[in-house]
Computed example of a mutant assay.
Amino acid sequence: MATVAAHSSAPAGPGSTADANRTMSANIDAKTVTNHSVIKNKHGFSVRTWAGGNGRFWWGLASTQGRRDNMEDAHLVDLHVDDQGTALFGVFDGHAGKEVASYCAQHMREALLGSPSYKTGQLEEGLAEAFLAVEQHMKEPAARHELYCLREGISPEQLRSNPSLASQASNYGMVDGQGCYLGPKAGAAASVAAVRGDRVCVAHVGDSRCVLGDNGRAVALTRDHKASDPEEAKRVVRAGLSVVRNRVATSNSSLAMTRSLGDTKYKAADQPVHKQAVTPVPETSTAPVDMLGGAAAGTPAVQQLGVADFLLLACDGLWDCMSNQQAVTFVSVALERGMSPGDAALALVEEVLDPHSATPASSDNITALCVQFAPMPEVSA
């Protein structure tokens, strides 16, 4: 694999960190951020990076528009979800627009906190309910203007002060025969991980992925939702749509995934969510993690338990170029060499941007989030 490409960074200035982290596509807990930079790599790509942590986690994120005309990825990092020590990490890969991915990044935490199962201590079930709540909220008229603002990159204040924009916002999205709003045309794949105690719970739709690094071994917590999967294809056909070249097809459009948030045109309002051709119902899983900060990695006890010492979430801009094991091996080697999770995430993105590396060059947006189950080291003044 290629070494880290040379780059120059432009750190955010004093007082700018919180603003930079609370953008429309980035919902990051500013209290945990120690660094935010914009990297211009040797191939001319701009890569935004964030890094931080607390007494339990050390995380880093790198995200780039890459070779695409527009940036449609979004992400979420929140280490202070509740007073039970729950942390939330997410990557969202938009298509046909950036607004649904951005909406998910902004609202997934509140949807989780409001879910009935979460309130009774069932974190995995709570995540599943949060996905469906976000899906439902996007179909409500109250979300229409917010989604329009996210698509156009404008603030609600700009919308309110401009009658022309307000009129356009009122026509956003899919409508029925009577002109009633049905939901966004855009959609997003989503992978979200909630960590509490020594367990990580994951929910996902689409082809973003969440993978654990277990002493150098890749442990997949998600599987891609594609029409090439017989069971997924069966649901698509039963719902009245077609599968053409392993894509969900309507008369005038197609979609590469069989589960997503948004994508109203592929969803029938009169069908239960779990029977829709493109369903918002996520698959979920729970796995143990090594909250000893990797100190026990490789010991017989940890190998026997199979607990992991880092978590990697990324959109398909990475996975189109690397297998789960390749990515975990890359990050494992980087961490073993003393790299921080932030530097490891950046190196991973640089690897698949580089047309001369051992991996194929990505043609998509790329977002990679690395979470090490270790306290952030104290930095001397």
Rank of each mutant, 00 (worst) to 15 (best):
N35F: 01
S117R: 14
A358P: 01
M339N: 13
H137L: 09
D316Q: 11
G44V: 12
M1A: 14
N27A: 10
P272D: 09
A314C: 03
S25P: 00
H75A: 06
A169T: 10
Y172W: 04
A218F: 02
H107W: 06
E283A: 10
N252M: 05
M376W: 03
G15A: 04
N162F: 11
D270F: 15
E231L: 10
A295P: 00
L335C: 12
L132F: 05
P300Q: 03
K42A: 15
V200N: 08
G53A: 07
R151L: 15
E336Q: 15
V281L: 13
A12Q: 08
T17V: 15
P355E: 06
G90P: 03
C370A: 14
A194M: 10
K267C: 06
R223H: 13
L348M: 13
K267E: 01
T284S: 10
G262V: 11
R160N: 04
A327I: 14
N35Q: 14
D263C: 06
N162V: 07
V47D: 13
A277R: 00
P230G: 10
G153I: 08
G13Y: 02
S242R: 14
G60P: 03
V248D: 01
G126C: 08
K139I: 00
A111N: 04
G206C: 05
E232I: 09
A287E: 12
Q158H: 13
S260N: 09
A297H: 00
Q106V: 02
A361N: 12
L79W: 00
S8P: 00
E378K: 11
V243S: 01
P163E: 10
D343T: 07
S357I: 09
D69T: 09
V202F: 02
T120E: 14
R259Y: 13
R223N: 12
S363W: 14
D82K: 05
S46Q: 15
V38Y: 03
G206R: 01
T120D: 10
K42M: 13
A295N: 00
N54S: 14
P360E: 10
Q372F: 09
P11S: 07
A30H: 09
S242Y: 02
F57Q: 06
M108F: 12
G126P: 08
S242D: 07
L305E: 13
V379S: 10
Q136Y: 05
G126Q: 05
P377C: 14
A347P: 01
K267P: 00
G85P: 01
S254G: 00
A296M: 11
S260Y: 11
A327F: 12
I28L: 15
N252Y: 09
F310W: 03
A30L: 02
A51I: 00
D320A: 07
E283H: 05
Q136H: 07
R235Q: 09
